[in-house]
């Protein structure tokens, strides 16, 4: 089965140099802010989410993925005018889910990465919708087709971005 891990090699945890843990999230936040200003509809893409998913599915450690997702999400909240914690909660949930699935799924496969990113993007939108609409009472509309387009765009970009980030990691057995 394509999506199932079939060997110890495939479930081996991946680690990154410490500088990568710091630079890549900051770069994702900066590029997200800058490119949205100059490229129309770049706000469909969520680079911090892609980084969160990548760390989670490669480390396969739910606790660290939750914490990484929380930090990245709160940092992303800092760029918005929302209350701090909206993206923090959503990315913590996504990090936990991605790390939990990463243990059971072959995350080296590009098809699996595509599907996972597609699903996690929709899941984050659902968490955001629940938080903002029902917990904070703020306007947040769910536009079905638009969300599918957004998820597809993030999934496609995620495949290329994950392949790029694979170059920076080292495998531990």
């Amino acid at each position: 089965m394509v999506l199932m891990a079939s060997s110890r090699h495939e479930v081996g945890a991946k680690s990154f140099p410490l500088v990568i843990y710091i630079v890549v999230p900051l770069l994702a936040l900066g590029l997200q802010s800058l490119l949205s200003l100059h490229l129309a509809r770049f706000d469909l893409i969520d680079l911090p989410l892609l980084v969160t998913i990548y760390y989670a599915i490669t480390q396969r450690e739910p606790v660290s993925a939750t914490l990484v997702g929380t930090v990245i999400g709160i940092a992303q909240d800092g760029l918005t005018h929302h209350a701090l914690g909206i993206f923090g909660i959503s990315k913590a949930v996504i990090g936990y889910m991605a790390a939990s699935l990463g243990v059971r799924v072959d995350t080296e496969n590009h098809g699996a990465r595509l599907l996972l990113t597609f699903g996690f993007t929709l899941a984050q939108t659902a968490v955001l919708w629940m938080l903002q609409r029902h917990m904070l009472g703020q306007p947040y509309a769910w536009h079905g087709f638009h969300e599918i387009i957004r998820a597809a765009a993030n999934a496609l970009l995620g495949v290329f971005l994950f392949a790029l980030l694979d170059l920076t990691r080292r495998t531990e057995y």
Binding site: S33, L34, F42, D43, L44, D46, L47, L79, T80, H81
Partner: peptide, 15 residues
């Protein structure tokens, strides 16, 4: 000078 945005559709914020 506008140097950035929030980067999300849910928050129309400029820097």
């Amino acid at each position: 000078q506008v140097i950035g945005t929030s980067g999300t559709e849910q928050s129309h914020v400029l820097l």
